[in-house]
Design a protein around this nucleic acid. Structure first.
Lengths: 356, 356
DNA sequence: GTTAGCACTCTCATGCTGAGAGTGCTAGTT
DNA sequence: AACTAGCACTCTCAGCATGAGAGTGCTAAC
């Protein structure tokens, strides 16, 4: 708004006070008054002096008052500054670590997604979100074709990380069971280890090149693979703990609750927001202004990517009012990202990857 | 509350007035006054006479007033009476029929569940719920075992109606890929057409009887089948249109919204409520008193079972404030149940079943 | 059996008031 | 020059009274 450039101008006392305000506000949800900072704060200043500083902080765009003579509330800029350079992350307590690891052990990939989402919401008291990989980007482990009836075939695709997707496709002619089995074995063996997208592209190229001398089996193989592998182009979203948000004071108004739900009904938007976090490692935080959804509601997103090896699969994170305990939540999201990555890798390779 | 036994005592005029009150209330959500019935109603009675009747109806437990000098509101008993003997069901309009049929055509079983739930909520403006079959009760179409790593095997079970469930199981020793394929073929061929529960039971019996002379392959088969077929014992729930409910005037209080969400977080309870409807054909309506959830919130459930052949698979229905348009919603739920059943049967048999 | 009339009750929106909280400013202190 | 005490000012919020409006119940007349 005003001079955000002079971060540097913030003296150490200004920073100390801003930090105090933010921490208090995160805890209380009420606008913070100069008096309460003076009392609670470590620096032995009077309320009046604090007031001066807070007025400056407001000029610089870090604080705002809901109305004259309410206390002051941190802005998005303040949170950014707080997270970037004044926060002291609190490591995830051993107890929670153990709890997470126990609940994220073994199981099929889709169960892992559910557990991760639930853990996020439970441990952060916010809404937990996990974006599952778009099948097209995953590495093929196995294919199976099951004749359903007539020319309909159920195609089941298993990714190397244990995700499963399926689709009913309709072939041009009825294909006998044995041939389906042969084809699926063939595809599994020759294409395992590549992404579905790669495979599709390769098959299409092959089809164009060899159109002339294709035999029937090859033609059928290509037909099946082309339609079958178009499975799950769009990633899914697993959400948990919506009711957590309802107890937050910022959602005491039904209108806001409604707007929130309408926003969430559009899963594609959630995916888009979360996906902003997939690039680059580590945890990313989106506050207010960064997206339509969060700004309208004064919400924030803390998210990170999970991956197997160097292949990013999806994102996971939490969503809640901007006023949240970043010192706890950022390490939590980080840890969950790592643990989920490891759990998936484990399912893949069979052995736990070496720990650093 | 008071003499509900003398339903018979309701004269035709009483019934007419009660019906008017219910219809008006469903439309307006406001307590309805004697005056409005007198004006709007067909019978040319004065407000005073209507008042007398309404006082009687209150004594008999069909109406209640939120407070003296508000209008009156129908009780659960009134709704039951209305649905049982005074409602005129409005057939689903042809346009909606077509819309439903188009959206419930083909596709894999899990997509069908999602579509059905969405259609329910969209067309009723209430929350749509579909309970998916517990895998244990479905008929086996095919099994597949895919080696994951070491002794871990991914077991994929396909039901004859196209539902898929999967599970990672850990075997006692590593089993080579070819043997897994042989075993899955064997199981698929010899047990297709039976329910998972039956198969498990039969295998366990077999294991006990032949314990002595079991060869290794048989032992492994039984091991795999036992653990693999324990898949999906509990049914799933697909919910859609939660935000629809938020616009209802009865949820203008955040506390209620919160209680509702907390109730819904417990999917098991939803399943239990909906499952009360699975027995007996047709549509069932639960109003208020019938369950903890609905009574606390003044909600109702309209649900029916869907089935393939004579085998009931799951239930589907809507949930919303008791004040809902039963004349429209009951036929809607009924039609959706039939259409979903047919769609699933079609996927199963390949041909649309004969129509009556 | 029906209706008109009227007193009564209850809710709800409105406006007022005083208490409380918090600020901004100024003048005085260190 | 930095800090603080004091004070006037502003804004919110809860409580209260008030009056309009809606709806009922009852009674007496048709």
């Amino acid at each position: 708004m005003t001079d955000l450039k002079d971060h540097g101008k913030l003296g150490s006392r200004d920073r100390e006070i801003l930090k105090d305000v933010i921490l208090t506000y995160i805890l209380s949800a009420d606008p913070v008054s100069s008096r309460s900072v003076a009392k609670h704060g470590k620096l032995g200043l009077s309320a009046a002096s604090i007031r001066n500083v807070m007025a400056d902080l407001e000029d610089w765009g870090y604080l705002m008052q809901p109305h004259t003579s309410a206390g002051r509330v941190p802005t998005a800029a303040a949170y950014h500054l707080f997270i970037g350079s004044m926060m002291e992350a609190r490591a995830v307590p051993a107890k929670e670590r153990r709890y997470i690891q126990e609940n994220l052990k073994g199981g099929a990939a889709d169960e892992l997604m559910g557990s991760a989402s639930h853990l996020l919401s439970e441990l952060s008291s916010q809404m937990g979100i996990v974006v599952t990989p778009a099948m097209g980007e995953t590495v093929l482990k196995a294919v199976d074709f099951i004749p359903v009836s007539g020319r309909k075939v159920l195609c089941i695709v298993v990714s190397s990380t244990g995700f499963i997707d399926n689709k009913v496709i309709e072939t041009e002619e009825e294909i006998p069971r044995e041939e389906l089995t042969r084809i699926s074995n063939h595809l599994t063996e020759s294409f395992g280890g590549h992404t579905l997208r790669e495979i599709r592209e390769r098959l299409v190229r092959q089809m164009v090149e060899e159109r002339a001398q294709m035999d029937r089996v090859l033609a059928r193989t290509i037909e099946l693979a082309r339609s079958g592998f178009s499975v799950g182009e769009t990633p899914g979203v697993v959400v948990d703990g919506t009711s957590m948000l309802l107890s937050k004071p910022e959602l005491s108004d039904v209108q806001r609750v409604r707007r929130m739900f309408e926003a969430f009904a559009d899963k594609a938007r959630l995916v888009k927001i979360l996906s902003q976090c997939i690039q680059g490692g580590g945890v990313r935080v989106l506050i207010g202004e960064d997206s339509e959804l969060t700004s309208e509601l004064d919400f924030s997103v803390v998210a990170t990517a999970y991956a197997v090896g160097d292949r990013p699969l999806g994102t996971l994170g939490i969503l809640g009012p901007s006023r949240m305990d970043y010192e706890k939540i950022i390490p939590l999201v980080n840890f969950l990202g790592e643990t989920l990555s490891r759990a998936l890798a484990e399912a893949f390779s069979g052995e736990p990857p070496e720990r650093r």
